[in-house]
Computed example of a mutant assay.
Amino acid sequence: MPHRYFTKELADGRAALTGSDAHHLADVMRAKLGEEVVLCGPDGLEYIGTVTRLASDRVEFTVTDGAPSKAEPDVQVTLFAAYPKQGKLEEVIRHCVELGIHEVVPFFSRYCIAAPKKEDAKCERYNRIAAEASKQAGRAMLPAVRMPLPDFNAVCDRMKDYDLVLFFYEGGGVPLREVLKPGCARKIAIITGSEGGFSTEEAAAAKAAGAVTVGLGPRILRCETAPLTALTAVMLLTGNLE
Rank of each mutant, 00 (worst) to 15 (best):
R219W: 11
A226V: 10
G217K: 10
A203M: 11
L231E: 02
A185Y: 05
A209N: 09
F198V: 03
T213S: 13
V214P: 00
A209V: 07
A204T: 10
L231D: 01
I190N: 03
L216I: 10
A230R: 00
E224D: 15
A226D: 03
I220P: 02
A211W: 01
S199M: 09
P218I: 12
I191G: 01
E201R: 10
T213E: 14
E202V: 05
V234G: 02
A204M: 12
S199F: 08
G215C: 12
C184H: 05
V214N: 03
T192E: 07
R186W: 02
A209E: 09
I220H: 09
G217T: 10
C223Y: 00
A208L: 14
V214H: 00
L231C: 05
R219A: 10
S194I: 04
I191K: 00
R186I: 07
P227F: 09
T225W: 04
T192Q: 10
E201T: 13
E202R: 04
S194G: 12
E224N: 05
A185N: 09
A189G: 11
E195K: 03
K187V: 03
A230S: 09
T232M: 08
A230I: 05
S194P: 08
P182G: 13
P218S: 14
I190Q: 05
G193P: 02
A211V: 07
T200P: 04
T200Q: 14
A189L: 11
T225E: 12
V212E: 04
G197V: 11
V214S: 08
E195L: 08
A226M: 04
A233C: 15
C184G: 07
F198S: 03
I190A: 14
L228C: 07
T213A: 11
L221K: 03
L216F: 06
A204I: 05
G196E: 09
L228N: 02
R222L: 13
A211I: 08
G197R: 08
A211G: 05
R219L: 15
T192R: 07
A208F: 06
T192P: 01
T213M: 12
G210I: 13
I188A: 06
R222E: 11
I220D: 07
A233S: 12
I220M: 13
E202K: 03
R219M: 13
G183T: 10
L216Q: 03
L221Q: 07
E195Y: 04
C184A: 14
A208R: 14
L231P: 00
A209T: 07
G196F: 09
R222Q: 10
P182Q: 12
A230C: 06
T229W: 01
T229F: 14
K187Q: 14
L228E: 04
A189N: 06
E224C: 09
L221N: 03
P227M: 12
A203T: 12
E195A: 14
S194W: 02
P218N: 13
T213F: 01
G215E: 10
A233N: 07
L228G: 04
E224T: 04
A185G: 11
A211H: 02
T192Y: 06
A230K: 00
K187M: 05
A226T: 10
A185K: 07
A203P: 00
T213I: 11
A233M: 14
T200E: 15
I191A: 06
A204H: 08
K207G: 07
